[in-house]
């Protein structure tokens, strides 16, 4: 067991963890923050994406002892004062959510993107979420949501009627 101190969504937690515990299992089991999901446990699907000191990482590939003294942001910390964040709001408005299992990781990857690149091109968006698998949406409404969140008004899709 190792004692770690970590700031998650602005709150400080001190816990004893076994050395092999992943950050994802630490968040989900030790802290009860189950918003970050496990889709593969092998760093392939991105459902567990969180920000570590402001950079997106697959929480299943980081060991809990590695985050000692560092800051973690998860999906649970995004909405403030009962209001969805700009990104969450854009996802909602653009119907970028279906089953929801990839959604937490998507939101965190997009958060990372927009902090670094406030006006991303479509290529930037696709690159940023390339590591986040979604089996439901086909990504299009997610891309539209990111455009919207970044203030771009062009490229809004829509169903056509014939």
């Amino acid at each position: 067991m190792m004692r770690i101190t970590v700031t998650v969504n602005g709150q400080v937690y001190e816990r004893d963890v076994p050395g092999h515990r992943t950050l994802l299992h630490f968040l989900r089991q030790d802290l009860g923050l189950t918003g970050s999901k496990e889709g593969c446990g092998a760093g392939e699907c991105g459902a567990c994406t969180v920000l570590l000191d402001g950079h997106s990482v697959n929480a299943c590939l980081v060991l809990a002892p590695e985050v000692d003294g560092r800051c973690v942001e998860t999906v649970e910390g995004q909405a403030k004062d009962g209001k969805l964040s700009t990104i969450q709001d854009a996802f909602n408005r653009n119907h970028a959510v279906q089953c929801g299992f990839c959604t937490s990781g998507m939101v965190m990857s997009v958060q990372d993107l927009l902090v670094r690149t406030p006006k991303p091109s479509d290529d930037d968006i696709k690159e940023a979420i390339e590591g986040n698998f979604c089996r439901c949406t086909g990504y299009l409404q997610i891309i539209e949501a990111v455009r919207d969140a970044s203030g771009r008004t062009e490229g809004k899709g829509g169903l056509k009627h014939a």
């Binding site: 086909g138 990504y139 169903l159 056509k160």
Partner: peptide
Amino acid sequence: SFTDNKIPTARDLPDVIESVAVE
């Protein structure tokens, strides 16, 4: 696994996607 059985990512999308409802 996802490494050996790839599924589409955002990078694999067609450039233009249109959906039409006939009613």
